[in-house]
Design a protein around this nucleic acid. Structure first.
Ligand code: MN
Length: 206
DNA sequence: AAAGTTAAGGGTC
DNA sequence: GGACCCTTAACTT
């Protein structure tokens, strides 16, 4: 296992959070600023961003952000009663998935991209606990652009955490984070610029 | 079939 | 205006 652990992660400029029922690892500058700038511009321009509609409490509503689901052809993804088929890999993202897989010593074969135009775009409390992701999925979250707050709260314990996800940073959610915790990206009126988030996941082939 | 809901709207401070 | 709670009421698994 060559992934950063609590004992060696300082050498790799990684912050480790050992929480009840969850492990988080945060690399503030996984990508250099110029590399992150370039990737953000490229993705913003070249991807087919969609405003999906989902059903919630009986209402059909447009999600307050734009998204793309991408990866290996077998990676079907379902949430809030809507089925998503993956777009084929963008070459740069296939490469990035492979680099992150190697760095974290964990396979990633699909990615959900979310584009938040400004602080009005957001995502409410939820967990990435879809059955196709398995019991204790590892989720690697790369942030580009506008820094945004990221909140986590335990489902049962009075335990909450706020992180600031910065341009070029990588956050790994591991352990039983998705089973015992929820997370959100709250509205932030003062955030004026675009953020793009990439959450790399692994879905086993059938 | 009971439980859970990645949403918005309306209240308060 | 904005941050934070609470409610919503119907569909899904
Ligand atoms: Mn999520």
């Amino acid at each position: 296992m060559t992934r950063a652990t609590p004992s060696d992660n300082r050498n790799q400029n990684c912050r480790h959070f050992s929480l009840p029922d969850a492990e988080l690892f945060y690399w503030p500058a996984y990508l250099t600023a110029p590399a992150a700038d370039l990737l953000q511009q490229q993705l913003s321009r070249e991807l087919h961003w969609q405003t999906a509609s989902i059903r919630i409490y009986g209402r059909e509503v447009a999600i307050p952000r734009r998204q793309v689901w991408m990866g290996e052809p077998h990676c079907r993804y379902r949430y809030s009663g809507t089925d998503f088929l993956p777009e084929p890999w963008h070459p740069r993202l296939r490469e990035l998935a492979s680099q992150i897989s190697q760095a974290l010593q964990h396979p990633f074969n699909c990615v959900l991209l979310n584009q938040y135009a400004d602080g009005q775009d957001h995502m409410g409390w939820h967990a990435d606990d879809e059955p196709e992701l398995g019991l204790a999925p590892q989720i690697a979250s790369l942030s580009l652009g506008q820094s945004r707050r990221f909140d986590l709260k335990h489902r049962q314990l009075e335990c909450q955490l706020q992180l600031l996800l910065q341009h070029g940073s990588l956050l790994l959610m591991a352990g039983t984070c998705q089973q015992y915790w929820q997370h959100r990206l709250p509205k932030q009126a003062q955030a004026k610029a675009e953020r793009i988030n990439l959450t790399f996941r692994y879905i086993a082939p059938k």
